[in-house]
Structures are given as C-alpha cells and as structure tokens.
C-alpha cells in the first residue's frame, strides 16, 4: 500500500467519474435516444448509462487515452462538446482539472470524501437542463486541452470550427477542492442555438 502510485489512484477515480458524467450529460441533454440508456446507481445516486456498445466503446477509448495525462497532471480540461449538424459547438461541458502537489499519504477516509464531492457534480449534471436551452439535433465529441505536446499522444488537433464558439454564455455548475484534486465544471452555451 505504501508504494501505491498516488497519481494513478487520482486518475482512476477521475476517469471513472468522467465516464459516469459523460453518459449522464448525453442523457440529460438528449444527444442520443433515451431508449439506449439504463438506470444505474453510482456514488449512491441514480444515473443513466448508455447500453450502446459503439458509444460506450468511444467513451471508454477516449478516457483510456485521457487517463495517463491526468496521472501526469498534464490534462488541463476535458471538454464534452455538443455540436449541431454543421459540426459547430452549441454547448460545451468543461471539466477543469488541477492537482495539488503530490501527497504521500492516502487514506480511505480521504477517498470517500472525494466520492461525496463527486456525487455533488453528478447531482448538478442531473438537473442542468433547467438552466440550459434545448439543443438542435447533432453529435458529440470529447476534446482535451493539455499543456504540452507529446509526440506519442495518439490524438489530433481539433479543427477551429469544432472549438470556436461566438460569445458563449458561461454557466458555472460545480467546483470542488480536495486534498487530491481540484475540479471545476462549467457549461459554455452558444447564444443562438
């Protein structure tokens, strides 16, 4: 237990959380038909998770690539972008992640405290449609903003049109500060959808 890699633990916790959060965003914002979602319990609250193999594969593969960057504290933002049919973003869920300098001790109490904080994010996502306007039919992408360019990273630079949003409305959803991670979630919404 002593040589438990702390960065790895944080990355595991965050990626598990991001997976649940992405599924829930897709459900709440009606990106995909509700028929592919099933009710589950995560962080002791009900959530909706997709049962569609291809969609689940996309989310899993994406987070599989994000994980090593979180581990190394190189991921600045993980962004779930909802796009219209012309591939212009209409809504962006931005997870801004930062980790304080590494701690040497981890305790179960500390981790369960983090779970409580993550639950609050999930609850906020569940009700976020109350403060957002409906989206036109479209698609999603998961983007990543990172500090450095590693040549071995298998992703490509996003197109300008997938990233640029004119005068977005900013809606803060939740912020958490714990000993192992700081995270902020906000939505950027295009004025005209």
């Amino acid at each position: 237990r002593q040589d438990l890699n702390f960065g790895q633990v944080v990355a595991d916790i965050l990626c598990e959380f991001l997976e649940v959060a992405i599924h829930l965003i897709l459900y709440v914002r009606e990106v995909y038909p509700s028929g592919i979602f099933q009710k589950r319990k995560k962080y002791n609250v009900p959530v909706q998770m997709s049962c569609h193999p291809e969609l689940n594969q996309y989310i899993q593969d994406t987070l599989h690539c994000v994980k090593p960057l979180i581990e190394k504290n190189e991921a600045e933002k993980v962004v779930v972008v909802i796009m219209d049919k012309e591939h212009h973003p209409v809504e962006r869920f931005v997870f801004e992640i930062s980790q304080p300098p590494l701690l040497s001790i981890s305790s179960d109490t500390l981790l369960s405290h983090v779970e409580q904080l993550l639950r609050a994010f999930i609850l906020k996502i569940s009700v976020c449609d109350a403060v957002l306007n409906n989206n036109p039919p479209g698609n999603i992408r998961v983007l990543l903003q990172k500090y450095t360019t590693n040549t071995d990273f298998p992703w490509i630079v996003a197109d300008e049109q997938e990233v640029h949003m004119q005068e977005p409305r900013l809606i803060p959803l939740k912020t958490m500060t714990s000993d192992i991670v700081k995270m902020q979630l906000y939505v950027e919404e295009r004025a005209q959808k």
């Binding site: 038909p33 969609l55 996309y58 593969d61 690539c65 479209g138 990543l144 630079v157």
Partner: peptide, 27 residues
C-alpha cells in the same frame, strides 16, 4: 490557439444519433 494550450480530439468518432436510431429500429 496560442498560450501553450493544445486542444485535441481522438481519431475515432462516436456513432451519430441516426446510426443509433437505426440500430434501435433493427432490433
């Protein structure tokens, strides 16, 4: 762009809403 931040996307794309609707209809 600029400022040292890089915005990246995976090479793969998720299935579209239409593709998923079609698979639901096929069931």
């Amino acid at each position: 762009g600029g400022g040292g931040a890089h915005i990246l996307k995976p090479l793969m794309s998720p299935p579209s809403r239409e593709e998923i609707l079609n698979t639901l209809l096929d069931l």
